[in-house]
Design a protein around this nucleic acid. Sequence first.
RNA 1: GGCGGCGUAGCCAAGUGGCUAAGGCGACGGUCUGCAAAACCGUUAUUCCCCGGUUCGAAUCCGGGCGCCGCCUCCA
Length: 490
Amino acid sequence: MGIKIYNSFSRQKEEFTPLERGRVKMYVCGITAYDRCHIGHARSAVVFDAVVRHLKHRGYHVYFIRNFTDIDDKIINRAKKEGIDTVTLATREIANFYEDMDALGVLRADVEPKATEHIPAIIALIETLIAKGNAYEADGDVYFSVRSFPSYGALSRRNLDEMRAGARVRPGEKKRDPLDFALWKASKPGEPAWESPWGPGRPGWHIECSAMSMKYLGPTLDIHGGGLDLIFPHHENERAQSEAATGKTFVRYWMHNGFVTIKGDKMSKSLGNFITIQEILEEHPPEVLRLFLLSKHYRSPLDYSPEALKETTAALDRCYNALNEAVHLSARTVKKHRPLSPELQEAVKTLKDLPEKFDQAMDDDFNTAQALGHIFDAVRALNRLNQQASKRPSALLSRPMEEGCKALINTAKVLGILQEEPGEYLRRRNLQILDAAGLKEEDILKEIERRNQARMKKDWEAADRIRANLLEKGIRLKDSPEGTTWSASI
RNA sequence: GGCGGCGUAGCCAAGUGGCUAAGGCGACGGUCUGCAAAACCGUUAUUCCCCGGUUCGAAUCCGGGCGCCGCCUCCA
């Protein structure tokens, strides 16, 4: 069985077959560079990153484009407010975007085009649309004529007549039909402008994506992705422009990710209820955010709360603890060759079966939630081996443990988690929490030393008091034959 | 008003006609431990918002309610 993708256009899961065998042409709408990215942007980026990773893992050569909108009204307004020019603003926010995305481990796209660097291609596309009678010029603006494209509304399931009933031409607009949208906007004095056959102006929002995607991928893309809120008007308009210009199918599989909500409401700039990626990463390892974003199916809404992130942290810690234990235990030299019990053989099998089960889940419309279920099953299996290795060591355990770790890490790579060295991850995470709580490691180590001296004297009361005091600060102690270790929890 | 989505355990969340309704967090009991922690084992939904219907069989399909959310203006 191959990969199935839910196509927003048909509203069905479809068998995925790219236009060219083994090659996937993919385009995802990137950000408008005017402000820091919030978790909603992170979701879109991480979800499609997982899609790209899985397609590659399944052997496809993926040619992936993700654009930057670096000129539009929001950028102009924000730049004006800050007293800087639009180029400075967009450049700064693109740098911020990379800072966030690199931290999250989101792979770079093959091409990351900017609208302002593709003005000639945009102008050429608009000229084609005018020549074909799908667009018209009015006083330096150019509009796309919605009624010239019969299947307008097909993607977002909108009825033109019903929409027309509520629509109005706003003062200052020179549209023939209220639903027509701008391909080119004449610039007002002082605004950034490019020369065009219709006078100085700038591209409309939607046309850039059509021009850039077709420039790099040709008239027909396999996959076009973006947030659910882009279906209308952005993707509807992209589709109309592109297909009107080429007469060919623009996109074969439309994919849209659901929103991040907060207390049930959509997280958005306009509502002001957003949390930036930067804010999250100050307090959490990047993989925690990734795991959180992939813990629910990509098309469903995902509700953010600090508690939810805390749960995710606990879950990821569990994985890293298992790996860390396994790494240490499997490195020990053991002479005894105890045979593995049926239960342990079952655990070995669970680890062995992980890659296949994981891939099956991912093949089914990138069901990351189900795929994670298999990861956690494998983690439990690994812990079983760990437990045996620590209590009743056997030389026969080392290999299954090493291979189990490898399977787990390789499999999780598609989701971009479990990619850090386990010991390092745990140590860094603990120190991050410690730092946030204003504590110092050396103080904790001193307390541990003091407690161990009490323990040597079997003064359990004193020892337990020290441990309880630390626990109040979120520091948990763990005694083992190798000594006492600490971990911090939020 | 038009279009669309969702409602599964204390919380989060897979599953969309037929094996024991995945998994995570939490809680409780057990093993281990000086006691803990971590880990493992077990318990935590005889039932999937409610009411009808189709079917040999429904959480899953259909009809009707109730509740929540989104898009229809910029938004990932």
